[in-house]
Design a protein around this nucleic acid. Structure first.
Lengths: 223, 223
DNA sequence: TGAAGATTGTTGACTTTTTCACAAATCAGC
DNA sequence: GCTGATTTGTGAAAAAGTCAACAATCTTCA
């Protein structure tokens, strides 16, 4: 009743949250069943790829019928550990950081920003969107206290590495890095980069050099 | 003296802006030459991959020496069309949109947000970070007037598709989509998705299911 | 000038990901 | 229950991407 022994391909793993969200949509619109073709239309992923992705988890559908929305949804809820809350810290309450604090998009996914950090004394001690802002000096203490192991990094590029070094000292396991810096961390820590400037520039490059382009792309994360 | 006839692989194209930025850093720190190994250390991309990427553009380096920073920089400036300004529109001045307007990261890359749109009458007519905010009704008119062909979409998910339909009516060629919606557009229009919730969720998934993970990842654009 | 060292460009192997295409299974209607 | 229409799950192939390894070539320095 545990994980399948086989490791899911990375490309597949990255699509799981996407599938999950659209299944939620289907569910709340009252749909009972769905085919890989319909899902493909909705998430813009080839239907064969969807079937292949699902098949890594076993036979989730029925031939001639498709997939039962409720079953699939509860299966992915388990697979994506949606029953337990993942607590996240946000480091750097600037423009972007503030946007995330106000964004409640995190609540949908059983992922919650529990605390934020900044050096600005005007922000320290306040709450933004219900999230308390602590002083950057308290990172180690607070993270360990609450056992937070995921951080969203939205600090200025110059301080990204030093602050990351401090996160490494804590029990941090994963960092969602919005700074342009490429961080040095031990290989036990996972980093996903979201580089907004690079994304925009690469879009522009594709527009100029790939005249009638194919679809798709979902940042984040190369490889 | 034009583009090489050969199409650059997508994975390579996505790394170009990254290389460009680090070359700028090297340049401003006064470095004259750089090896693929050094660059690899900085951008966290395998050195063989870097050499391979560069080689698509011809022989840019010298054996036993490495790459001349100035030459490489000016080569990529041309390749990435950094000599011409790309004008961008931002649609939806909410938390995230406002963050981008205040973020001057766009100015580095000869990409500039020229105008923003929202429905909120309190925002319409103001300027945020020097960018004028127009009413959403003016999208078609303003975009065509200024010949803006790239849009950053930061509107609520519910209105993402209808607004996209209006962008399609204008001369829009590319959209950087920050909404969770997967947009329907003609295949002549390129969309890059940056799905923040998905990014965070997939990071969490990897942490739980890929115990000691390999490095890397850069949104974006999944592909 | 010559020898030692450095570093590219590229071949080829390998890995990962996508896609085609179809047998097998199920469904739906009569 | 039979028939025709669906739709999955997957084998096999193609496509895309990564990386190790090394000959070729340049640099450096004595």
């Amino acid at each position: 009743m545990n994980q399948e022994p086989m490791r899911i391909p990375q490309a597949t793993a990255k699509r799981l949250p996407l599938y999950y969200r659209f299944l939620q949509n289907l569910h709340s619109s009252g749909k009972q069943r769905v085919s890989s073709a319909e899902l493909s239309e909705a998430v813009k992923v080839d239907s064969a790829t969807i079937r292949r992705d699902f098949s890594y988890f076993g036979a989730l559908g029925k031939k001639g019928y498709g997939y039962n929305v409720n079953y699939l949804l509860s299966f992915f809820r388990k697979t994506l550990d949606q029953d337990e809350l993942t607590e996240v810290a946000l480091i750097g309450v600037g423009n972007l950081g503030t946007a995330f604090l106000n964004y409640n998009f995190l609540k949908n996914n059983n992922t919650k920003i529990e605390m934020a950090f900044d050096v600005d004394e005007n922000k320290v001690g306040t709450k933004i969107g219900d999230v308390p802002v602590y002083h950057m000096d308290e990172i180690e203490k607070r993270l360990e206290e609450q056992n937070v192991t995921v951080a969203i990094l939205t600090v200025p590029a110059q301080v990204a590495q030093p602050i990351t070094d401090r996160l490494v000292q804590s029990e941090i396991k994963g960092i969602l890095n919005f700074t342009p810096a490429r961080l040095n961390v031990p290989s036990s820590i996972r980093i996903h980069h979201i580089d907004l400037a690079v994304e925009l520039q690469s879009l522009v490059y594709f527009l100029k050099h790939y005249p009638v382009a194919e679809q798709e792309e979902t940042v984040s994360t190369d490889k």
